[in-house]
């Protein structure tokens, strides 16, 4: 019986169809050669090298935090797309939509996963940075990858900032208020910032309430629907897209810089 099943599986594996999908034939890699082949012949696996020094897989060394940050990002992307099906970014609907989110479907915990996932990702990214620092892994030739890492950190925090505004509840709107008023305090670029009042010809100010850093952020002089749409687009399109590009470069650089850092 078992033999027959094995035979059947083997036959399926040998079909043109399966062989066309898995470049190495779909078998479970058994020997060293095959194990090296999986890594080389699979798009998702080839993010990794084939062989690595042993310390690089020690949890005690990497804490797995970079990998987990990436994984949680993927979870957030999937759950976020599900949430988008039920969310309308308007002042009229946003709050109600978020409130109903859990009732839309049975077992609706996608909002919970998305929200707690966002918190968790912040923690893992911070801890990842901490371990990279403590192992001195930012030193040459990895300096620039650290810089990319800082950009990733910034983008992660911006993603959460834009995200928690979307429910349009009290937390959201006061977060926007305070955040956008900080923008208004930027030197030269904001009406309330130092230097802005110097940028004028005669009595015409270049930087005023209708044209400053705050205005760009909330698309108006007061917080309202335009601001919600702006943050929605940033949260769902601009920032995820940007962070994916930087992540790609980050991973590529990890490999090009010689893999996980190791003692010389």
């Amino acid at each position: 019986m078992l033999d027959k099943l094995k035979k059947l599986l083997e036959n399926i594996r040998q079909t043109q169809f399966v062989r066309s999908i898995f470049r190495m034939g779909g078998g479970f890699p058994r020997d060293v050669r095959q194990r090296m082949f999986v890594m080389l012949n699979n798009f998702f696996m080839h993010l990794h090298p084939v062989r690595i020094p042993k310390h690089a897989i020690k949890i005690k060394y990497t804490w797995c935090m970079g990998g987990l940050s990436f994984f949680i990002f993927l979870v957030l992307a999937v759950t976020g797309m599900l949430l988008m099906f039920y969310y309308r970014p308007t002042v009229e609907f946003a709050y109600g939509d978020v409130m109903d989110m859990n009732e839309q479907v049975p077992l609706g915990i996608m909002r919970e996963i998305h929200r707690w996932g966002a918190h968790l990702m912040i923690i893992t990214v911070w801890l990842h940075m901490f371990r990279v620092f403590m192992t001195g892994s930012y030193k040459p030739p990895r300096e620039f990858n650290w810089v990319i890492g800082v950009i990733l950190l910034l983008l992660t925090m911006l993603l959460s900032f834009t995200g928690y505004l979307l429910p349009w509840d009290q937390l959201a709107i006061w977060g926007i208020s305070v955040g956008s008023n900080m923008a208004a305090a930027s030197p030269f670029a904001g009406t309330e910032g130092p230097g802005a009042s110097l940028l004028k010809i005669g009595s015409i100010n270049f930087v005023h309430k209708g044209a400053d850093a705050r205005f760009v952020l909330i698309a108006g002089r007061f917080i309202g629907e335009a601001a919600l749409v702006r943050f929605y687009v940033l949260h769902c399109v601009v920032l995820p897209f940007t962070i994916m590009i930087f992540m790609a470069v980050h991973f590529w650089r990890v490999r090009k810089d010689g893999g996980i850092s190791k003692p010389l």
Binding site: R35, P53, P263
Partner: peptide, 17 residues
């Protein structure tokens, strides 16, 4: 300690994966 560990190379499949 990491130096001793890093002298040995292992395969990514299956150990890391």
């Amino acid at each position: 300690k990491e130096w001793h560990d890093s002298q040995e190379k292992i395969l990514v499949w299956p150990d890391l994966v």
